[in-house]
Design a protein around this nucleic acid. Sequence first.
DNA 1: CGCATTTATGAGAGCGCTTTCATTCATGCT
DNA 2: AGCATGAATGAAAGCGCTCTCATAAATGCG
Lengths: 345, 345
Amino acid sequence: MRSRPRLIDVARDAGVSPATVSRAVSQPELLAAATLALVQASARKLGYVPDGAAQALASGRTMTVAAVMPTLDSIIFAKALQSMQVALSAVGYQLLVASHEYSVGAEAEAVRLLLARGIDGLILVGAERPEATNTLLRQANVPVVLTWCPDGVNASVTVDNALAGRLAAEHLIRLGHRRIGMVCGHLLFNDRQRARLEGVRAALAEAGLDLPDWRISHQPMTISGGRNGCSALLECADRPTALIGGIDLFALGSIAEAQARGLCVPSDLSVVGIDDTEMASQVSPSLTSVHIPTAQIGEMAALTLLGRIRHAEPPADRLLPINLIVRRSSTVPPAADALQRSSET
Amino acid sequence: MRSRPRLIDVARDAGVSPATVSRAVSQPELLAAATLALVQASARKLGYVPDGAAQALASGRTMTVAAVMPTLDSIIFAKALQSMQVALSAVGYQLLVASHEYSVGAEAEAVRLLLARGIDGLILVGAERPEATNTLLRQANVPVVLTWCPDGVNASVTVDNALAGRLAAEHLIRLGHRRIGMVCGHLLFNDRQRARLEGVRAALAEAGLDLPDWRISHQPMTISGGRNGCSALLECADRPTALIGGIDLFALGSIAEAQARGLCVPSDLSVVGIDDTEMASQVSPSLTSVHIPTAQIGEMAALTLLGRIRHAEPPADRLLPINLIVRRSSTVPPAADALQRSSET
DNA sequence: CGCATTTATGAGAGCGCTTTCATTCATGCT
DNA sequence: AGCATGAATGAAAGCGCTCTCATAAATGCG
């Protein structure tokens, strides 16, 4: 029993040169129809499968791109990954994944390994990274597409995270809330959360409100994080009448925590999320949230990257629209608070 | 400005042979300490990064494994993927991902592409696939690890899905429920759901109960699927007093739907899930669910695969334990039903 | 009908690394 | 001291494919 047949075996069988077989595989349009059919018949007969490593070495193309995400098991990134994968596999590209758990060093290391292994393009999340990593990327001369945040150098597919925060805050302000808290992810190596927080802060400032540190709770990005954050914010004096979750998970956790404490959402506490994941519309009360087109980010990132790889398109930034989806978790502040507020003024 | 330095450049710079540089990279223990240091210095100086494609071609090892999942954006598979990735990257392996959206053909195609691209090992979900795919796998002679369901041929890291269904059902039976419905994913190319359903059916049968088709609602695997399934089951005459979700998402959707209809969970309707995802413990009421060690499946699958790749370990099956986590969403059936039930008897 | 094109195929030199085999010393043993 | 061993390195033959260049055949045109 022989090992896997190689290109030359097919060539021999079909009575053509290796070059012809190679063309049959990668540029069939160059061959006469008859020759092509002949080669394909031999290939099928022998069960020929081209060797990817050899193709990669000889052609310089690996037909593989990589995505380095903070984590793979977040609904958001998983969804983006899924749409990337679909877009890529549709044109024969493979997707390599890595995660860094919000560690700058881990990201740099992942990028290094990926570049060594050989990739045709790279998708990263966020714009914040040490200059060393950027240098590495530049030297490797590999097309890069950034997602969620632009950096002005690489191509990017983003949303305006500050606007997301702003939309959430403005909605609450418009409803009459004046004490608004925020449950927010750690800001280290997370420019998305930082931008959202700044958007909230800016909107509040414009309304003459402020967002003191003690009304911001930084939490790990899980539902429990949301619960704990809500818990912390509700326990301080002068408790907020509304909460913004830096991600839906926080908002969902906050609703759960508020309910567990016997508070009614939204009448006792309004909650607004950012992301608009599937859960948002399904929980009770349904969650008001800023819709972020996550899947579209993934797909567009993949397509943009393919454009850069295959047609050498120059870097370009695409900003996807976002919008507030008002549901049941937000309403006017409690009457007691309205009174208290007016007496304060 | 030169292009990336190659191995031979380092050899020249260090005044050694290419073979020595190669050893410095892949088998440093073979070199004299002094030589190694010399080579490493040159490599660092020149910024040498080995070419993965060339390494792969020359050595036959790609340092890459692939995972083909039904979808990447399910919490379950995303979590498994995450733990695989961590386990793999710890030993320098890269993870390639593909998804097939529960299409047999798509899986076969993904496997074909992956094998062509060159991988050292493969992780698949479930045991059900056409013989053609298995043949392909056998010919490629690549180590395979199955997850969630064993097939008796390949190595596997699994849980007893039938037992999961059984645990859920027995819990409800023990509480006194006699009309138990199930929201279940499509069974086509999904042996996990099939096994869970069979487990439920078997447990009911042993209790002298049956599970007529009209008490099973097959739904797409989303929360809305859960809502719709619940909706369908509640609308038939002789409505069930308890529902089992083939995945937590269904159970979660069922709770939402029941609540939206003004039913109280668990007093009007008990709901049990399978998977025990993070949401289960956080929703209100918290969800009784059969815990499946998803992350562990991923990690063990990766480790098992590595064992097969690096130490040529023979296929082995590992069955991970599961257990029912009782929370607030399940209780005894409504009193009215108990009466009605006894009058029926 | 002859020449300039175009189209289809072949020849062959790599792509950058690994790895066997051979070679050279240094070492241990009797 | 003399020989068998083992350790450290080098030489060189690929790994399986791609792609440029050259050639041969087919086509178009005046």
